[in-house]
Amino acid sequence: MTPNLARPGVLARQPIGDFRTEAGATIPEVTVAYQRWGSYRVDADGTSNVVLVEHALTGDSDAASWWGDLVGPNKAIDTDRYCVICTNVIGGCQGTTGPGSAHPADGRAWGSRFPAVSIRDQVEVEKQFLDSLGITSVFAVIGGSMGGARCLEWSYLHPEVVAAAAVFAVSARASAWQIGIQGAQIAAIENDPSWHGGDYYDTGTAPNAGLATARRIAHLTYRGELEIDERFGTTPQTGENPLGAHRSAGQRFAVESYLDYQARKLTARFDAGTYAVLTDSLNRHDIGRGRGGLNRALSEITVPTLVAGVDTDILYPYHQQEHLSRNLGNLLGMAKIVSPVGHDAFLTETRQMDRILRNFFEQVDPDAPGAAGQIEYYI
């Protein structure tokens, strides 16, 4: 069966039916938004050329935009060779069913009725999506941060489907520090007077002040301390004086203005309810839950897996990727992204990412073009 895929680069929505979450809630009539690039192919042995790219927390299905230097013809994730598919995650706000979607029962937004979802749920929805298209084989899953967590769960849950995985800047489970900092972001949203218990969609207002605060907190964990200090230091924002006789919200340091800018960008394109749902998904991430613990679960992953981390990552410190590399059942290798940028380096350090991904494909695809220069693996 040849799947009826959307035209390359076009946002499409695929109905997949009802979905039951890991915790026992039912989400009826789920729709998954996705984009694809490249032509679909299945080899004689049944192996497809599908590469699933998994987006991070505030990402979307347009991988050719947010990973534009890596996804495309003759690029590291080569759309002349592979059929690249990227879905918007369940709970999202870019076309997939989420808290802002219309509930089938009454046409009003799901709001507070939308169930909690786990990383495992995100993967199972994506598996149901592929099943609905008739895709039974995936050549590789690739992703960072929340996308990396999905890659790990894909490898554990469906090794019969996934042939290889590349996991960037994530851990085997959420640490207490991560849960704490992410819980503070959720609290910022839920304490906004416009939250209305999650049922704000028909009020004419949205908890954007809370979402903006959450983004400011989060962005500091996405970037490196050295990078932020070197860029801004204690410099005042142009035309403002944060050292005056009285503190004022209108008199900012340059770094505060920068964080305000990042907050405005997110609130213009993202839904607060989705941010709360997906951040909670990250807090629930634990590859070892119900599987005999972290190390046992990791050892049972037989899918060949590349792991890479960022040396200055505050949110998912490099030692967490080292833990993955020591315990995965089938490690291809481990790479270090060296950057002052911090966690976001898997999105911004495209030259290093290009080399890492080309080497990954060279290892898992015998017919792939040679890598552009070798990288050092830390095994």
Rank of each mutant, 00 (worst) to 15 (best):
S145G: 07
N208D: 14
A176I: 12
A254D: 09
A214L: 03
A166H: 00
A188Q: 08
P236L: 07
Y156F: 15
S248V: 03
G197A: 09
R223W: 12
A214E: 03
Y201S: 10
G183Q: 08
H196S: 12
S155F: 05
T205L: 11
A214D: 02
R150P: 00
A164H: 11
S248K: 10
R223S: 11
Q182E: 12
S155I: 07
I186P: 00
A187V: 12
A188Y: 02
Q237V: 04
T238Y: 06
P193E: 02
P207N: 08
G250Q: 06
L152Q: 10
Y200L: 14
E160V: 11
R231G: 07
P242V: 05
R247F: 14
A206T: 11
A174K: 07
T203F: 02
W177T: 14
G148Q: 03
G250C: 07
N241A: 10
Y222C: 06
N208V: 11
A184D: 00
R173A: 10
T235F: 03
A206Y: 03
H158R: 15
W195V: 09
G148T: 01
D229N: 15
R173T: 04
T238L: 14
A187S: 12
G148K: 02
P207F: 11
A174V: 11
W177K: 07
S248N: 13
S194W: 06
P207T: 08
M146H: 03
I186R: 15
A165T: 12
W154N: 10
S145H: 06
A169L: 01
Y222S: 07
G183Y: 06
I189Q: 01
G204D: 05
L157W: 01
E225R: 10
G183S: 11
R223G: 04
S145W: 01
W195A: 05
G148E: 01
Y222E: 07
A187R: 15
G198Y: 08
W154I: 09
E225N: 06
A165W: 03
A245I: 14
A172T: 12
D199N: 15
H219L: 12
D202A: 13
V170S: 05
G144R: 00
E160I: 09
M146F: 04
V162G: 00
H246Q: 14
V161A: 02
A188D: 01
G224S: 06
N191V: 10
Y222N: 07
R150G: 02
T213M: 15
H246R: 12
R173I: 00
Q178M: 13
A166D: 05
R231K: 11
G144L: 00
D202S: 12
E160M: 08
G144K: 00
R231A: 13
H219T: 15
A149R: 03
G147W: 05
N208W: 06
T234K: 13
R173L: 01
V161L: 14
E190H: 02
M146N: 01
A169I: 01
A214C: 05
S145P: 08
D192E: 06
G147K: 01
G233R: 03
A209E: 11
S194A: 15
